[in-house]
C-alpha cells in the first residue's frame, strides 16, 4: 500500500504543482473556520446572555424564548442540511454575481451553527460564576449589561476556554463538507486532485495529515492563550 508513497507524493504535488490547489483549499478552509469561529463566539455570547437574563419582564421573556428556539433548531439539524438549505434555498438569489458567494454563505452557516453550541457553553460558563460577582458589580452602581460584559463574561470565557477550543477544533474539521455547496476548501481540492490523477490513497492521506496539523497548531495556540488568561490565579 505504501509502495512508492513518497514518489507519488512528489509527482503529484511538486512535479505537477498540485500543491497550489491545496494551498487554495487551505486558504478557504482557514478563512471559513477563523471567521466563523468569531461569528460563533460573538453571536453565541448574545444568545447565552439572552438565556440567562432574569425573566422579570415581557421583553426578557421574549428574548429568552427566541434564544431557546434558536438553539433548539440549529442544534437539531445537521450542518450539511443547513448549508444546502442556505445555498440553494434561503440565499439562492442573494449575493448575485459575487464570485465568493459560496464562501460567504459557508462562513455564515458555520458561524451560526457554531453559535448555538457556543451559546450553551457560554451559558454554562456564566452560571458557573458565583452570583456574588453580579451582586458586587450591581452594588457599585454598574448596570446589568456593564456588569455582564466587564465582570461576568471575562471570567466565564476563561473558565470555558477548553470547551471553546474544542468547538474551534470541531469547526476546522466540519468545514470539510463546505465543498457540497461548491466551496473550494481543502477537501474539495483533494477530491479534484484524486480525480485528476486517478489515485485516492496518497491525496486523502495527505489531506488527513493536513487537518491533523491544523488541529495541532490550533491546540498549541489555545494552550498559550489559556496560560495567558490564567495569569490572575496563582
Amino acid at each position: 500500500m505504501f509502495d512508492g508513497f513518497f514518489e507519488k507524493l512528489y509527482t503529484i504535488y511538486i512535479e505537477n504543482s498540485a500543491y497550489t490547489l491545496l494551498i487554495d483549499g487551505l486558504k478557504n478552509t482557514l478563512i471559513i473556520a477563523s471567521i466563523a469561529v468569531i461569528i460563533g463566539i460573538v453571536l453565541g455570547a448574545f444568545v447565552a446572555v439572552f438565556k440567562v437574563i432574569p425573566r422579570n419582564n415581557i421583553f426578557a421573556k421574549l428574548l429568552n424564548g427566541i434564544a431557546s428556539v434558536y438553539i433548539t433548531v440549529i442544534r437539531g439539524t445537521p450542518v450539511m442540511v443547513q448549508l444546502l438549505l442556505a445555498y440553494y434555498g434561503i440565499f439562492a438569489s442573494s449575493f448575485r454575481g459575487n464570485p465568493n458567494k459560496a464562501l460567504i454563505i459557508a462562513i455564515l452557516v458555520f458561524g451560526i451553527n457554531s453559535s448555538a453550541y457556543v451559546a450553551e457553553i457560554i451559558r454554562g460558563g456564566i452560571l458557573s460564576i458565583d452570583r456574588g460577582q453580579m451582586e458586587a458589580g450591581r452594588s457599585l452602581g454598574l448596570n446589568y449589561p456593564s456588569t455582564m460584559i466587564k465582570i461576568i463574561l471575562p471570567q466565564a470565557i476563561k473558565n470555558i476556554l477548553p470547551a471553546l477550543g474544542n468547538e474551534f477544533i470541531v469547526m476546522i474539521k466540519e468545514t470539510s463538507v463546505a465543498g457540497f455547496i461548491t466551496v473550494f476548501d481543502l477537501t474539495r481540492a483533494t477530491r479534484a486532485i484524486v480525480s485528476d490523477y486517478y489515485t485516492a490513497f496518497v491525496p486523502y492521506l495527505t489531506l488527513a495529515a493536513i487537518y491533523l496539523l491544523l488541529v495541532l497548531f490550533a491546540t498549541f495556540l489555545l494552550n498559550r492563550l489559556e496560560k495567558r488568561l490564567r495569569k490572575s490565579d496563582h
Binding site: 460577582q133 458586587a136 450591581r138 452594588s139 457599585l140 452602581g141 471575562p154 490572575s232 490565579d233
Partner: peptide, 21 residues
C-alpha cells in the same frame, strides 16, 4: 436604582472581589 446604588457602598461576607482584575 443604579444611580442610587452608586451612593450606597456594600461589603459582602464573601468579599466578592473581581478575581480577574
Amino acid at each position: 436604582i443604579n444611580l442610587h446604588r452608586q451612593k450606597m457602598g456594600m461589603v459582602f461576607q464573601q468579599f466578592n472581589l473581581f478575581p480577574h482584575m
